[in-house]
């Protein structure tokens, strides 16, 4: 569970920096400049996928692009590294369910 530092939260509520996107279809809010992984954590989503091997839940671990535990489906493309992609207005983020599908 993560929260914004208060002055940042305040600035965010002043809307200019806020980005509206969706997590599994639900509306969510992030700050411009957030990575998708950070935006998920800021919205209380700690587990962003389950693994293709055992199905265990996972969430971002390294935040620097090396662990691949932050994989999510972004705008219909599976297995993207959430910590390496910046959130953008209207982006549709979906938690990744096991193996990627070849057509998404």
């Amino acid at each position: 569970m993560f929260r914004r530092l208060p002055e940042i939260e305040t600035a965010l509520n002043a809307a200019a920096e806020a980005v509206a996107f969706t997590i599994d279809g639900r509306p969510a809010k992030a700050r411009a400049g957030d990575s998708v992984a950070a935006a998920l954590l800021a919205n209380g989503v700690t587990a962003c996928r389950n693994t293709p091997v055992s199905g265990a839940a996972r969430g971002p671990y390294c935040m620097m692009g090396i662990c691949f535990d932050c994989l999510v489906t972004i705008d219909g493309t599976g297995n993207r590294q959430g910590c390496q992609v910046r959130v953008s207005p209207g982006m549709a983020v979906e938690t990744q369910n096991g193996k990627r599908e070849v057509e998404r």
Binding site: R3, G33, D34, A42
Partner: peptide, 15 residues
Amino acid sequence: GAAQVLLKTSGLVPS
């Protein structure tokens, strides 16, 4: 280090 990235890039801290 990951948590620190969250702080630096997004001003996020554990709650």
